[in-house]
Amino acid sequence: MHEYSIVQALIDRVQKEADAHGAEAVNGIRVRIGELSGVEIDLLRSAYDLFSEKSVCEGAELEIVPVPARWTCRGCGAQIRAGEILCCSVCSQPASLAEGDEIILERIEMEVA
């Protein structure tokens, strides 16, 4: 259940930004979570609901943008479809993950006086 550690890092980061901008409240947070990041979105949401209480994030809406895994060939850039062998059928080069492993805090919406 590393989702709890991730949420703790999220709240710490939001607190830092809120302090830096003199925020009175935080209304919303947007994160991007990759399919192959190892973070379960449902678990992240329940960890957030639990840990955000009495923190700077209390009451702030958490928007989670899921990012599907996208593999491309390292050599020719061809797309490699999900469920296939991770090797290019055209040039036999190994695949590389173009996106889908991110755990990113994208944006915070806050109220400033």
Binding site: R13, L105, E109
Partner: peptide
């Protein structure tokens, strides 16, 4: 009323 301010972060939550 307080002003709504979006703050772009774009940082990994594993950066620490």
């Amino acid at each position: 009323d307080p002003e709504l301010m979006p703050v772009e972060v774009h940082e990994s939550l594993l950066s620490e």
